[in-house]
Amino acid sequence: MTQNAADAASVDLLAIARRIATDVAETALEERRRGISVAATKSTPTDVVTAVDRDTEERIRAMILDARPDDGIFGEEDDTHVGSSGLNWVVDPIDGTVNLLYDIPSWSVSIAVVDGPPDPGHWHALAGVVVNPVTGEVFEASVGGGARLVDARLGERALRVNDDVHLSRALVATGFGYAAERRASQAEVLVSVLPRIRDIRRIGSAALDLGAVAAGRLDAFYELGLNPWDHAAGALIVREAGGRVGGLGGAAESDRMLIAAAPSLFDELAALLEEAGA
């Protein structure tokens, strides 16, 4: 397949991802307005699942298989569906479930399509969409096609990360794990990071954090312990907005660390995190 053909295929995949993500986001918002409760817990008592998470992933899976029956699906709430095409859909039905539970308007539906296995170190992301159902904002990108923010009220605009921001003036977002021991370790790192930057933000949805970096609403984002579905779409959106995404020491992003920032800021932040013991 030529590069032009590959880019065209990615645009087609993006259209499918956008249609599915916006459709299920609307339904999830309707369910939230009717009221929700915790359906189960996962890794710890604070790591919750709602019926909206499960219902949304079921709808996403059904719509993907209807449109692309030969593709695989790798999601948060259900078993991996193994496909035969070599493409995998990486799905977070609700990123920011605690925000959803408390009716904080920062939760999202995240859908990406990758070429290769559901492993960030070995896949090639082709398309990604992150939808905030409350605001109606849609962050999206296709490989080689740039990144955009689509807002029903304000229209569409291309996304670009903030360039030439010094670390001391950087507005940085992060997140925390659910296990008490990990949270304590992350807090120790933050104590070292916070005096060296402009300020910190904790939004509660890694997918929206990454969209915000791409949109220039944040200068950088870092977090330890993310799962592939947390960042598959958002990382592509940052890269297509001119940003850099990776881990520490030149590694690819993984559960050990994800950093997203403009290329001019990335190395400074990575060095600070290493110095802080991240």
Rank of each mutant, 00 (worst) to 15 (best):
D92N: 04
L194V: 13
S254R: 05
I200Q: 01
S106A: 12
A212L: 13
L171I: 14
W107A: 01
A235V: 04
H124E: 13
H81P: 00
A67V: 09
A127M: 05
E274N: 09
G204A: 04
I259P: 06
G277T: 13
V91A: 07
G72W: 07
A251M: 12
S168L: 06
A170T: 06
F139M: 06
A206E: 10
G211F: 08
A271E: 14
R198K: 14
W89L: 08
H231P: 00
A51F: 14
R61P: 01
P45M: 09
R201M: 08
I64A: 08
R202C: 11
G146R: 04
M63C: 02
V98Y: 08
I94V: 15
G144L: 07
E26Q: 13
G155P: 07
A147C: 03
D267K: 05
S254F: 06
L101D: 00
A21R: 03
W123P: 05
L236K: 02
N88S: 12
V238N: 05
V24H: 02
V82H: 12
R244C: 07
G242T: 08
A260S: 14
A270V: 05
L218D: 07
E275L: 12
D7T: 14
R160F: 07
R54V: 15
A251E: 15
A8Y: 00
L194M: 11
R33H: 13
G247K: 10
L236W: 01
L194R: 11
P120M: 11
L126P: 00
E188W: 10
L14I: 08
G277I: 13
G216H: 05
L226R: 04
V238A: 05
G225R: 11
D92Y: 03
D255H: 12
L210Y: 09
I259S: 13
A9Y: 01
D66R: 15
A8G: 00
E268H: 15
E240I: 08
M257N: 10
R153T: 11
T97L: 03
N132M: 04
A147I: 07
G216L: 06
L224I: 15
L190A: 13
R148I: 01
R201F: 08
D230K: 02
P133A: 03
M1F: 12
